[in-house]
Amino acid sequence: MFSGTPIDFQDEPLENNGFWPDLNLKDFQSQRTIPADIDADTIAQALIVAVAEVNAELESVEYQQRAKGYESAAAVPGVKMSGLNALCAQYTKAVFARAKADLLGEFATIGQRETHPGQESTETRAGLLAEASVVIRRMKGLKRATVKMV
Rank of each mutant, 00 (worst) to 15 (best):
M1W: 15
S3Q: 04
S3L: 06
D8V: 03
Q10F: 08
N16C: 13
L23Q: 14
N24Q: 02
N24Y: 00
L25E: 06
L25C: 07
K26S: 00
R32Y: 13
R32K: 12
T33V: 14
T33P: 05
D37W: 03
I38W: 07
A40D: 08
T42Q: 15
T42R: 14
Q45M: 02
I48L: 04
N55C: 14
A56L: 10
A56K: 15
E59K: 11
V61C: 04
E62Q: 15
E62I: 09
E62L: 07
Y63D: 07
Q65P: 04
G69M: 10
M81N: 08
A86K: 13
L87H: 05
C88W: 01
A89E: 04
F96D: 05
A97W: 08
A97G: 13
R98Q: 10
K100A: 07
L103D: 05
L103E: 09
E106S: 14
E106I: 04
A108F: 03
Q112V: 02
R113K: 02
E114S: 05
P117L: 14
Q119K: 11
S121Q: 03
S121K: 00
T122G: 01
A126W: 02
L128W: 12
L129T: 14
L129F: 05
E131A: 10
A132G: 14
A132L: 09
R137C: 00
R138L: 02
R138Q: 03
K143D: 00
K143Q: 00
K148R: 06
